[in-house]
Computed example of a mutant assay.
Amino acid sequence: MLTVEYTLPAELRADILALAQEELHPQGASVAALQLVQSHFRWISSQHLQEVAQLLDMSPDALDGIATYFNLLFRQPVGRHVIMLCDSVSCWLMGRDRLCAHLRQTLGIHPGETTPDGAITLLPTVCLGHCDHAPALLADETLHGDLDTDALDRLIGSLRETP
Rank of each mutant, 00 (worst) to 15 (best):
V82K: 04
C100M: 13
L93P: 01
T106K: 15
C100Y: 04
V82W: 03
T115N: 04
L137R: 12
C127M: 10
C100G: 07
V78D: 00
D87I: 12
L138Y: 01
G118D: 08
L85A: 11
G108A: 14
H102C: 07
P111R: 06
D117N: 05
H81Y: 04
L138R: 09
P116R: 11
R80A: 07
G118C: 02
G108P: 05
T121M: 02
H130F: 14
D97C: 04
G95M: 09
P124Q: 10
W92K: 15
I120G: 05
I109T: 09
R98N: 13
P124N: 12
V126C: 11
H133N: 06
A101K: 15
A139I: 01
W92Y: 15
P124A: 10
A139H: 01
C100D: 11
C91S: 02
G118H: 06
L85T: 04
H133Q: 13
C131W: 12
E113A: 07
V126W: 14
I109V: 15
L107T: 03
P116F: 10
R80D: 11
T121L: 00
A101F: 09
D132P: 00
P116G: 00
R80H: 12
L99P: 05
C100N: 12
L138V: 04
M84W: 07
Q105I: 02
G112M: 12
C86P: 10
C131I: 14
L103P: 04
T125S: 12
V82F: 04
L99Y: 02
H102L: 02
P116C: 07
L93R: 14
M84N: 05
G79R: 11
D117S: 08
C86D: 10
V82R: 06
I83Y: 08
I83N: 10
I109Y: 10
A101R: 15
L107C: 07
L137V: 07
L107M: 06
L137S: 08
L99A: 06
H110Q: 15
I109A: 05
R98Y: 12
E113S: 04
L123R: 15
H130G: 04
D132G: 03
D132W: 01
S88W: 11
H133D: 01
G118L: 11
C86R: 09
P135E: 00
T121Q: 13
C131H: 02
T114I: 01
C91N: 09
T115S: 12
S88E: 03
V82C: 04
G108V: 02
L122F: 10
A139Y: 03
H81E: 05
S90V: 04
R80G: 01
L128H: 03
W92E: 14
C100T: 11
G95T: 03
D97Q: 14
W92C: 07
A119Q: 15
